[in-house]
Design a protein around this nucleic acid. Structure first.
Length: 572
RNA sequence: GCGGACAUGGUCUAGUGGUUAUGACAGCAGGUUCCCAACCUGCUAACCCGGGUUCAACUCCCGGUGUUCGCACCA
């Protein structure tokens, strides 16, 4: 943590200037919910757009968009209903509340797997005392799910559902469509940005822990036997990696991504690629590269779905904060959804380099004999015959059926046949590498890192030195005086600039010019055009650069064209 | 969720059981000013919500909500 004053000034500024404010404030506010105001919403839009661009520019990643409301079955399969569901036990003596599984960690090999009543049995059978007051007087364990429950449809026929705790399930639901879209070839990825909902017990720290928050997640589907290996040599500078203290390379490493992979600190090549691309994104939107580090999860803190996980942490006013999680979710989700839904569409096809000729003996059922004998059971008999591994040498033999019963098969019922087939490939469940971004946390740190109070000529002065890709406005248009024709020129410049797609100008006409520069600097507007008396005579304006307050004079059309082309810096 | 502290214009704040509830900054209108929060005049704008005590509550009490600190929690 750094000095408290700066955090207060920063959050005050963000309220005052309409960046981020508490929601529903006239009704007292709700903790864990925030609004982006007129300035903040533009910053957020640009951060999200940069993020989507960053990943879709890879060419094998597409954007999708799916509902927040998610039927319960989906979240049962994903594990969120079960695992996401911590039990809490309350001490009747001191009213302390504790996670039940933590209380019985040492009394039971796998406390996570227990139901509420089983937990209570373990607690009462083991003389578990309250860590706070030492008493042993527990109320029954209560499940405390962090998801917001809701109902789809009205009345009793409604279907149980939850607000999604992550956007990732949307990508898994759409896997069959994505597989077709990518011509049935891995690897490919899909991403979406949107809201996620977690009913946090006690959200604190402003926009760091929210109950409704903006996520941006990418699911990258790969063949685990042929994981894509990106070119990591593009990133030459070392990055801070804190590897698993229980792993093979414990400790802090200052190392390039490429060396981290080669030395085995990062275990998976595709994960390494996403670490590097994540770092690149963060730096591109203005995160200070010296305040980024990656931390590998230990086995015990890993989410239920992940087999390997790195957090990207960013340092700011709240210390090191996890802003991105990069997880190798393996085949967990797709496999579980296949099982729960009964579909077989969540697979990838692995083509063999050369077809493999497979010879095998099969017993093909003779329907005209089997039918009359087994009647309603006959289709089960045929099915069992086709599943048979290893053909019995002697007839008759006992054939086990799926329902547990068995039947006598005689030689008249089957034809022994020698089958030869060319096998061209095989189905498998793809693995998933997932970078999951907390957009609100990233926006916080972008603004934190840009918030520069170093002052100007000894006076207090703040500049929000945002990267140009995420500023709320691209430029301010300032008539030196709001009269004498300067107002007219300023208005027409503003409207011409605003007609350029994706570029926004802010026209500010009130109070002194210095005050207006200060207002623009405070919210990070990188450029200002000032219309003055000379503009009336020769159609020139001055362009002011936020970061050094330098000014140059150019013709109006040069200013606008350079803004359009993004080449204003070249004029200085 | 527990315990403590706190809650006054947009922001930061002063203060009182009873008169018109401070001040600064920001904002608005006008004046002035030929480029970096200047100055002058005027203006807008607040006691978190609900109960209770009291002749009278922004002030005291209780509850709620929010903020914050510590504990717990953070998949």
């Amino acid at each position: 943590m750094t000095d408290q004053g700066r955090l207060d000034r920063l959050t005050s500024m963000m309220r005052r200037r309409g960046i981020v404010l508490p929601s529903f404030e006239i009704y007292g506010g709700v903790s864990g919910l925030i609004d982006y105001g007129p300035v903040g919403a533009r910053i957020k839009r640009r951060v999200v757009e940069s993020w989507v661009d960053h990943w879709t520019s890879q060419g094998d990643v597409v954007e999708i968009d799916s509902p927040s409301i998610t039927p319960k079955e989906v979240l049962v399969a994903s594990g969120h209903v079960g695992e996401f569901n911590d039990h809490m036990s309350e001490c009747r003596s001191c009213e302390g509340v504790f996670r039940s599984d933590h209380l019985i960690d040492e009394k039971h090999p796998n406390p996570d797997s227990l139901s509420g009543s089983e937990i209570d049995e373990v607690i009462s059978g083991n003389d578990v005392t309250c860590p706070n007051c030492g008493e042993n007087d527990w109320s029954p364990a209560r499940p405390m799910n962090l998801m917001f429950p809701t109902t789809i449809g009205a009345m009793r026929s409604g279907r149980e559902a939850y607000m999604r705790p992550e956007t990732a399930q949307g990508m898994f639901m759409l896997y069959p469509s994505l597989f077709r879209h990518f011509k049935q070839k891995l690897p490919f990825g899909a991403l979406q940005t949107g809201r996620g909902y977690r009913n946090e017990i006690s959200p604190r720290q402003g926009m760091i822990r929210l109950r409704e928050f903006n996520m941006a997640e990418l699911e990258y589907f790969i063949d685990p036997e042929d994981p894509p290996v990106g070119d990591l040599s593009r990133w030459g500078s070392p990055v801070e990696l804190l590897s698993d203290p229980e792993g093979e390379h414990p400790g802090i490493h200052n190392i390039t991504f490429s060396d981290a992979l080669n030395s085995g600190i990062v275990r998976h090549p595709t994960v390494a690629w996403f670490l590097a691309r994540t770092w690149e994104f963060l730096v591109n939107v203005g995160i200070d590269s010296t305040k980024i580090r990656f931390r590998q999860h230990t086995g015990t803190e890993m989410a239920h779905y992940a087999s390997d996980c790195w957090d990207c942490e960013i340092f700011g006013e709240y210390g090191w904060v996890e802003c991105v999680g990069i997880a190798n979710r393996t085949c967990h989700d797709l496999e579980s959804h296949e099982e729960h839904s009964g579909t077989n569409l969540l697979r990838g096809w692995r083509q063999y380099p050369d077809p493999v000729l497979v010879k095998r003996d099969v017993l093909s059922p003779n329907g005209s004999v089997i039918g009359p004998i087994f009647k309603s059971k006959s289709s089960a008999v045929s099915e069992a015959l086709s599943q048979l591994e290893g053909i019995p040498d002697e007839m008759p033999f006992e054939l086990g059926l799926e329902d547990g019963t068995s039947v006598q098969i005689t030689s008249e019922m089957v034809n022994r046949r020698n089958e030869e087939v060319n096998v061209h490939g095989e189905w498998f469940t793809p693995h998933v590498v997932e970078p999951a971004f907390g957009i609100d946390r990233i926006i916080w740190h972008i603004i934190d890192h840009a918030f520069d109070e170093s002052g100007k000529e000894g006076e207090e002065y703040t500049i929000l030195s945002l990267d140009e890709s995420v500023t709320p406005y691209d430029i301010s248009i300032l008539p030196l005086f709001d009269k004498d024709g300067m107002d007219q020129i300023a208005r027409s410049i503003a409207s011409e600039i605003n007609s350029i797609p994706g570029i926004r100008a802010d026209l500010d006409t009130s109070r002194s010019i210095g005050r207006r520069y200060a207002r623009a600097d405070e919210i990070g507007v990188p450029w200002a055009i000032t219309v003055d008396h000379s503009s009336l005579e020769d159609n020139t304006v001055t362009i002011r650069r936020r970061d050094d307050q330098m000014q140059i004079r150019v013709p109006i059309d040069v200013a606008i064209d350079s803004l359009r082309m993004g080449t204003l810096n070249g004029l200085f």
